[in-house]
Amino acid sequence: MAHEHKLEIFRGLLKFKSNTQKIWGVLTFLTLVTIVEVALGILKPASLTHSYFLGMKVLNWIFIILTLVKAYYIAWDFMHLRDEKSSLRRAIVWTPIFLVAYLIFILLFEADYIYNVYKDGFVKWNF
């Protein structure tokens, strides 16, 4: 069991005095991120919904990145991956990331292909 806690987040920018304090700090951060997400989801600024990056709206990219940020802090501070040995941490984190990235890549490309078949091919589905 990891009894010693690393009490720094944001690469040492913020250092807490105790583990309890760090937990509340991380909660505040996660809440802020969620509030930003919800605010963006309700407002949907036109500048972000009309600009695209790699075929996806910039707003959606922001959502996904913020989600990964939240996931990082949940895993690192709530699930104490920060306090585990780096070998354990890498085994847990990189295995799913590699497999999921591959799965997403292959499925989304295939889906886009099917979308084009429906759109341009001789398939009638909207009747």
Partner: peptide, 13 residues
């Protein structure tokens, strides 16, 4: 992840 990727597949389709 499999479920969510399948959701993404149907959504992109």
């Amino acid at each position: 992840s499999g479920f969510l990727a399948a959701y993404g597949f149907s959504r992109f389709k």
